[in-house]
């Protein structure tokens, strides 16, 4: 028997992020985690796919490059993937940052190439969110949905199908259940 203390599944950062040791995070310097975010095993985050298009405006500040920005209390289930989308713009190919707000849940095996995901969004298992999709606040995407590229999903929608369509609305009373603070607290080593 090894005398080493058994290492837990998660590494907890100063800001309270719980990151699985078995996650596959590439380009960590280009990823911002807002805090209290859970990243489970086998999640891939492609922080290396940086923006390469430089705007011709010299006045623009050149700060730290960001490929993936994630807010607070997000939950990334086992085997999902976050990948900044890429497109051809003015004859140059470039990736663009993937921004995720707070309380976003992403189900197991889903692949996300959106441009923007608002707060309190719940994405089910095995979904595919196409390139440059924009998902506003309080949206639920059911299991196995394929959100087509460039789709804009309005707030309080329920989306399902292949290709994804808005199939319903979230009633005001249902909004309370989309807070992820409790889910975060339940994740322990």
């Amino acid at each position: 028997m090894s005398k080493k203390p058994v290492k837990g599944e998660y590494i907890e950062t100063d800001t309270g992020n719980k990151v699985s040791r078995r996650s596959q995070i590439i380009g960590t310097t280009n990823i911002i985690l807002g805090g209290k975010t859970v990243i489970q095993a086998e999640v891939i985050i492609r922080g290396d796919l940086l923006r390469t298009y430089t705007s011709s405006n010299p006045g623009e500040k050149q700060g730290n490059p960001v490929a993936v920005a994630i807010g607070r209390y997000c939950f990334f289930s086992r085997g999902c993937e976050l990948r900044p989308p890429g497109k051809l713009y003015k004859g140059q190919f470039s990736h663009y940052p993937l921004k995720i707000a707070d309380h976003v849940f992403i189900g197991p095996g889903s692949i996300i190439e959106a441009a923007l995901i608002g707060s309190h969004v719940n994405i089910g298992a095995n979904c595919v969110v196409g390139k440059f999709a924009i998902i506003k606040d309080y949206v639920r995407i059911l299991d196995g949905t394929v959100v087509p590229p460039n789709m804009v999903i309005p707030s309080f929608s329920i989306v399902a199908g292949r290709p994804g369509r808005v199939v319903g609305e979230i009633a005001e009373g249902e909004v309370d259940g989309m807070d992820l603070r409790e889910v975060y607290r339940e994740v322990r080593n």
Partner: peptide
């Protein structure tokens, strides 16, 4: 052509 451009970008990133 777009795939070729994409390859050129990925060459810098990966």
């Amino acid at each position: 052509k777009m795939v070729a451009r994409q390859v050129e970008v990925l060459r810098k990133l990966i």
